[in-house]
């Protein structure tokens, strides 16, 4: 076990190395032209995170530092714990009776599993978009305004709804039908609505669990463009099964492999072109998975 963790990118000895490579990303690829990457802070950090469902261990000793205002992709074969990791960030796993967590998960340095953390308040800072679009059976407007209302936010609803829909690249398609049911939208539109709904409450982090897997290629590419834009203002963590998608949209990529192990985490280019681990290369080149 110990010898294995020794090779992990994010454990104690290699943290510096990974910070170095963080600095390196400026020259690698920053096609968004965002600010200097050197100023990037860690927003979310997992330390020796284990997650169990009853007796089944879904995540094993995960260590990772997710940087601010970048897109971090999580890839790996089915059942390797990607969704579990995402849900443990904003404590959605609290809703699963069988789930149990060990280790630490820090949000801006604070362990979110500390007793004094209110999961409701946490989820107000860390929004989530799900695999299948799940708009409420309410109007388009009410869907976007929903979070503002439950969070009792003192804002101009009209304005926030419009801005959020614009950011989600949906405004032009729905501006004349805001009072119609969200269920009448197409799947791709519904998913963009769910993204608008998540950004309306102005979170710091947006977690996305395979947000495009239920969509056709055109709708998918709209979502991908959108994610690119979102990273200007938000930290985005996205789970995807689609390797090309991860390569296209992410700055950093984490590779989980069967057994709930985070095997490698690095700049996306490095992962796809020159991974440290043979198992990661095999997975990416399709030999395994």
């Amino acid at each position: 076990m110990a010898s294995e963790t020794g090779t992990e990118v994010t454990d104690e000895t290699s943290t510096e190395a990974s910070e170095q490579s963080l600095l390196g990303t400026t020259e690698v690829a920053d096609d968004r032209g965002a600010g200097p990457v050197a100023s990037t802070e860690t927003v979310i950090e997992a330390r020796h995170l284990d997650v169990f469902y009853d007796d089944v261990q879904a995540l094993q000793d995960v260590n990772i530092e997710i940087p601010e205002k970048q897109v971090t992709a999580m890839i790996g074969p089915s059942g390797c714990g990607k969704s579990t990791f995402l849900r443990s960030i904003n404590r959605m796993n609290d809703l699963v009776d069988a789930a149990r967590i060990e280790g630490e998960l820090l949000f801006r340095g604070k362990n979110v599993y500390d007793e004094d953390v209110d999961p409701v308040a946490l989820r107000r800072k860390i929004g989530m978009v799900f695999q299948h679009p799940n708009p409420f059976p309410k109007s388009i407007f009410d869907n976007v305004a929903y979070g503002l209302r439950v969070q009792d936010m003192d804002v101009d609803e009209q304005q926030v709804v419009e801005e959020s829909l614009k950011k989600a690249a949906l405004w032009d398609e729905v501006k004349d039908q805001l009072d119609q049911s969200a269920l009448d939208l197409s799947g791709g539109q519904q998913q963009r609505l769910c993204i608008a709904r998540a950004i309306a409450v102005d979170p710091e982090v947006i977690l996305m669990d395979e947000p495009a897997s239920a969509l056709d290629p055109i709708a998918t590419s709209k979502i991908e463009d959108l994610i690119d834009d979102l990273a200007e203002d938000y930290t985005v963590v996205i789970v995807t099964h689609n390797m090309q998608q991860a390569a296209r949209i992410s700055d950093k990529t984490a590779v989980f492999l069967t057994g709930g192990e985070l095997v490698e985490f690095d700049d996306t280019e490095k992962i796809f072109e020159n991974p440290e681990h043979q198992r990661v290369e095999d997975y990416i080149t399709g030999k395994f998975g």
């Binding site: 959605m92 809703l95 107000r124 929004g127 799940n134 409420f136 929903y146 439950v150 769910c194 409450v201």
Partner: peptide, 20 residues
């Protein structure tokens, strides 16, 4: 999925029950 959406937006259990 509707409950999850609501919790994900920072709703309390009471709000999930009454508004969703």
């Amino acid at each position: 999925s509707l409950r999850q959406a609501s919790y994900g937006l920072g709703a309390t259990k009471f709000e999930v029950s009454t508004t969703v």
